[in-house]
Every structure is written in C-alpha cells, then in structure tokens.
Amino acid sequence: HNLTITQGKLFFHYNPKLCLSEIHKMEEVSGTKGRQERNDIALKTNGDQASCENELLKFSYIRTSFDKILLRWEPYWPPDFRDLLGFMLFYKEAPYQNVTEFDGQDACGSNSWTVVDIDPPLRSNDPKSQNHPGWLMRGLKPWTQYAIFVKTLVTFSDERRTYGAKSDIIYVQTDATNPSVPLDPISVSNSSSQIILKWKPPSDPNGNITHYLVFWERQAEDSELFELDYCLKGLKLPSRTWSPPFESEDSQKHNQSEYEDSAGECCSCPKTDSQILKELEESSFRKTFEDYLHNVVFVPRKTSSGTGAEDPRPSRKRRSLGDVGNVTVAVPTVAAFPNTSSTSVPTSPEEHRPFEKVVNKESLVISGLRHFTGYRIELQACNQDTPEERCSVAAYVSARTMPEAKADDIVGPVTHEIFENNVVHLMWQEPKEPNGLIVLYEVSYRRYGDEELHLCVSRKHFALERGCRLRGLSPGNYSVRIRATSLAGNGSWTEPTYFYVTDYLDVPSNIA
C-alpha cells in the first residue's frame, strides 16, 4: 500500500525493539523526510534493546553428524571492536523451508527459537588472519532439518551509529543413524509349514526405512522333555500350542467401542483428552525405555581390526524358502538304536541362519518350516543398504507352526516275539517326523474274553527296548493296539495285532 503524509511529521519514542533503520525507511515511504526535528525521533529510546544489523554474515563451514552440527561463519568486528559482546545463534526444527525470524513471537518477546549466546573469538592483530567464530550444536535429532541463523550482539553506541551483522536463515539436516526397533511384532501360524509375521514401523526411523531383515531359527525343545518319565503317576503330560491366527481386521481397528449394538453396526467412541494424553505418555515412556535398553543392555560386537582377528559373527547367506525346513542338525536320541526319531534339535552355532529381506511392506510369510516346531524370529529395521547396512537392534518374537495331521501315527506293522515265561516283546517304529517329539506310547492289549488293559511306555523305555515287553501273560489269544502321544496330543491307534500265548508248562520236552 502507498502511504503519503502531505502535512505533519513523524514522532517515535520509547520503541526499544524498533531499529532506527526501520524508522528511516518509514520517513522515505511516507514522504516526511526532512520535516522531523532532532528530538522527534529519539536516538536513545528507539532500538536500544534490539540488534540492528546492516551487514550480512556468511557461514564459512558446515559439518553434520547424526546428532551434531558444527558451524563456522566469517569474522565480524565493528569499528570499535570492544562493542562486540558476542553472537546469538538461533535454531529450531523446520520440516519445511518457510521459516521466518519472527515465527511464534508474542507480545512478551518470546519466540519459538532456541538461542545460544556465543563469546567472540580472540581478536588477531592481523586483519587478514582473524579467527572464524563458530559453535557445535549438540543433542539434535537424527535425520531432522533445522533452520539456523546467527547475528551479532553489540553494545549501545553513544554516537548512535547503527552497526551489526546478521546471516540469512539456512537449512541444515542432520545425518541418518540406526533406527529404533520395529514396533509390535506379531507372529502367527496359518499352516503346519508357515508363519505369518506382521509389525509396525519404528517410532524413530532416523532416516528413510529402506528394508527390513527377518531372521528365523528353529528352537530346540526343553531338555526336561527328553529326561522326564511322563508315565509316572502324578506327572502331567506336557503340551505345546501353536500360535493362533490373526483376529479379523475389524476387531483390530483402534479407537473402536468394545460393545456392539445388537441391531447392527455401531460407531466408534472418540477417545477423551485424558485417554489420548495417557497414550502419549505411555508411548514416550516406551521410547525412553527402549533407548535405555539399547544403550545399557546391548553391547556392540567388536569388529575385526587390522591384526587379522576374525569377526566372530557368522556370515549372512541367503537361502531359498524351500530350504528352511531342514535348518537344524538332527541327532538321534540314543545312538545305539537307529530307529528312534531325530527330534532332539541342538543347533550348531556355526550354522548360517536363513533370512529374508523385506522391502516396502511390514509383513512376511515364512514358508518351508517344520510342522509343530518353535521358531525364534528376529526382526531388524534398516535405513541404508549400501555401502553397508545400517540397521536397528533386533526385536524378537516366537511362534510355533501348526501340527501336521497323521504325523504322530505309527507307520509300519507292530511285530512281536514270544519268549519263555510268557513274555512277549512288542516292537514298532517311532514316527519319523512327529509333531514336536514323542513323549510316550500307549499300549492297549486284551486277552479274548477279558477286559482291555493299558500300559504306558516312556520315551526312554522305548529307546532301550525298541518297544516294550509284556510279562506274566496268561495263555490265550491276544490283540494289541499302540498309539503315540506327542507334544500336540495323541496320534491314531494302530491296526490290531494278534498273537497267541501258550502255557509254557505244557511245552513238550526233548528229553527222552
């Protein structure tokens, strides 16, 4: 807008934040220059609390790290170098490059900038070799853009010569660093050979998330399962459950009422301010606690030095998902009996873990797994792929695949051998790939016309006998059925096997 004052003059007093240069501009645009008398524009009460600059400061050096910015700028000295009290560095987070010096300023003089007072450097006698002032900004957020400017702080001049310097606002972004852990990993099994893994992005990506790394490792069953005799009275049979499938998407929606109208769909109840505040506090606490764990609990591995020492970490090797089922080394339970199943799973520490690289999504279907087997899954978020990966501390989750139908069934015939004193040795093959492992066998036998009897055969007993022995049988026709019990439950009964026990007292003698 054009402003013209045809008559009258300007009068400025007691404006401590208004620089004289701005008042002189007002004289020019209003056409009143030359009308004012000496005392109409006070030299001592206008701009006496402001830094009124008329020179431009330029930054000469900028260096960044993930949490620091090192700045240096060209030296500046007023005509009387004693008038320079120091520099004021202003900075704040700036997602967009549209910041002005006066953003967030209120009537009390406060604003949204963080201000650092910096002492002037030592003055050199040689004007050509003056030290460049600077400042190291610490405690910054990774991968965050900051708006920065600097200006001088000078003393009051009796001659009211307006001098000083100020830089333009520059924008500097800190470097990326390792992201925080992925949030809320959930693993479920939808079949006997697959596990579905879902997660949420890290709360602090500290860069642009480029991919996720998912490692999985087959877990050995508890050692007590191999040692305890679950045929003993009072000892509860062990059981394991597989990871249940995901709930429906509708039930997972946030901010939804727990109660549904019987007449149909209901609208979600909005969260109160107290609920939102509580969630923010919980989120802040979780982030602080995660940072504490990362800094205190997890110790970084030592990389190899120039002395030739090897990095103890196993090298990563990509495998196809079809090879995942046989990740671990199978060892027989008892070496003397080769027909026992290889369900003991000690994992070799030198073995390469299978892994998958996930790009542009937060889910993965891990296939080719062994049925009813526990897996430990390790999830890392990465925001750099080359020249070397920059990934987060791992988040861990466990899951067990679903049982395989008929995996616990005894394959092959049940054979028998009759000894003296009416002892019958029953023999059968253990299931080759049971659900988890076989903890015991149930032997059901009966003599024709009598009630059915049951015998429990422990895992250890089966390994020693290759089956079991029935003792003290009365003469007669017998039928026997056997079924295995694994961590997933009972298998199917075998087809009945028949044998006849004679009275050993009636056996004919070869003595003449």
Results as ranks from 00 to 15, higher is better:
347 T>N: 08
226 F>C: 06
422 N>K: 14
479 S>M: 03
329 V>K: 08
450 D>H: 10
274 S>N: 10
456 C>Y: 01
387 P>M: 15
451 E>S: 14
237 L>Q: 09
309 A>Y: 11
454 H>I: 14
338 P>Q: 05
251 S>P: 12
381 A>I: 01
391 C>R: 03
316 R>H: 14
323 D>E: 13
443 V>W: 00
417 E>T: 12
284 S>E: 04
250 D>E: 12
312 P>D: 13
304 S>D: 12
470 L>I: 10
506 D>P: 07
291 D>M: 10
421 N>H: 08
285 F>M: 14
499 F>N: 00
307 T>V: 03
434 P>W: 00
291 D>S: 06
349 P>Y: 14
232 L>K: 05
344 S>H: 13
501 V>L: 06
402 M>F: 07
483 R>L: 03
275 Q>M: 11
468 C>L: 05
246 F>Q: 12
305 S>T: 15
391 C>Q: 01
261 D>F: 15
398 S>A: 08
463 A>I: 08
474 S>E: 11
295 N>A: 07
241 T>E: 04
288 T>I: 15
380 Q>F: 15
406 K>S: 08
211 H>T: 05
258 E>W: 15
351 E>M: 10
504 Y>D: 04
209 I>D: 03
501 V>G: 00
407 A>L: 12
232 L>G: 11
290 E>V: 10
292 Y>E: 14
354 P>I: 11
405 A>S: 07
399 A>R: 07
415 T>R: 13
468 C>K: 08
310 E>S: 06
408 D>V: 02
343 T>W: 06
336 A>H: 15
371 H>W: 07
457 V>F: 15
378 E>R: 06
204 D>V: 12
222 D>V: 13
410 I>G: 09
243 S>H: 10
272 T>N: 13
245 P>G: 15
301 R>M: 03
482 I>P: 01
283 S>W: 05
359 V>A: 14
331 V>D: 04
276 I>Y: 09
322 G>I: 10
431 P>C: 09
203 S>Y: 14
297 V>Q: 11
485 T>V: 05
324 V>Q: 08
242 W>P: 12
496 P>A: 15
258 E>V: 05
477 N>R: 09
311 D>Q: 15
277 L>M: 11
378 E>A: 10
296 V>R: 10
340 T>V: 07
505 L>K: 10
343 T>Q: 10
248 S>C: 13
347 T>S: 11
319 R>V: 06
332 P>V: 05
342 S>E: 10
215 F>V: 13
267 C>Q: 05
421 N>T: 06
321 L>Y: 09
377 I>F: 07
432 K>H: 13
318 R>D: 10
223 S>Y: 09
469 R>K: 05
480 V>A: 10
379 L>N: 02
376 R>T: 08
337 F>K: 08
318 R>G: 09
435 N>D: 01
282 E>K: 13
353 R>V: 15
448 Y>V: 07
404 E>R: 11
344 S>R: 14
374 G>W: 03
481 R>A: 10
304 S>M: 13
434 P>H: 06
211 H>R: 06
216 W>T: 15
286 R>Y: 13
409 D>V: 04
332 P>F: 06
425 H>G: 08
239 S>D: 11
473 L>P: 02
483 R>W: 01
389 E>I: 02
303 T>V: 05
243 S>M: 13
232 L>T: 13
212 Y>L: 02
209 I>Y: 02
467 G>V: 06
431 P>I: 11
261 D>K: 06
310 E>K: 02
389 E>S: 09
440 L>P: 00
414 V>H: 02
362 E>D: 12
262 S>K: 04
334 V>N: 05
233 K>M: 14
374 G>E: 15
505 L>A: 10
379 L>R: 00
299 V>R: 12
351 E>F: 11
431 P>L: 02
243 S>V: 11
253 K>V: 02
243 S>P: 10
488 A>S: 08
337 F>R: 13
487 L>F: 03
226 F>H: 05
501 V>R: 02
490 N>D: 03
383 N>C: 13
380 Q>P: 01
401 T>D: 00
338 P>E: 08
487 L>G: 02
493 W>S: 05
392 S>G: 01
214 V>Q: 00
246 F>A: 07
401 T>G: 00
388 E>Y: 14
407 A>T: 08
258 E>F: 15
445 Y>M: 14
310 E>V: 03
284 S>G: 07
336 A>E: 03
472 G>L: 07
325 G>T: 15
208 N>Q: 02
460 K>S: 10
338 P>M: 14
331 V>H: 14
377 I>D: 00
378 E>P: 01
242 W>L: 14
444 S>A: 07
297 V>A: 06
458 S>N: 05
410 I>M: 05
207 G>I: 02
361 K>Y: 13
256 Q>S: 06
242 W>Y: 06
441 Y>L: 00
206 N>H: 13
370 R>M: 04
455 L>K: 11
271 K>H: 07
300 P>D: 15
302 K>V: 08
269 C>M: 03
360 N>L: 07
205 P>V: 01
259 Y>L: 03
305 S>Y: 07
259 Y>S: 09
259 Y>A: 05
355 F>I: 11
385 D>G: 12
455 L>F: 08
501 V>P: 01
484 A>S: 07
488 A>P: 02
440 L>R: 03
391 C>T: 10
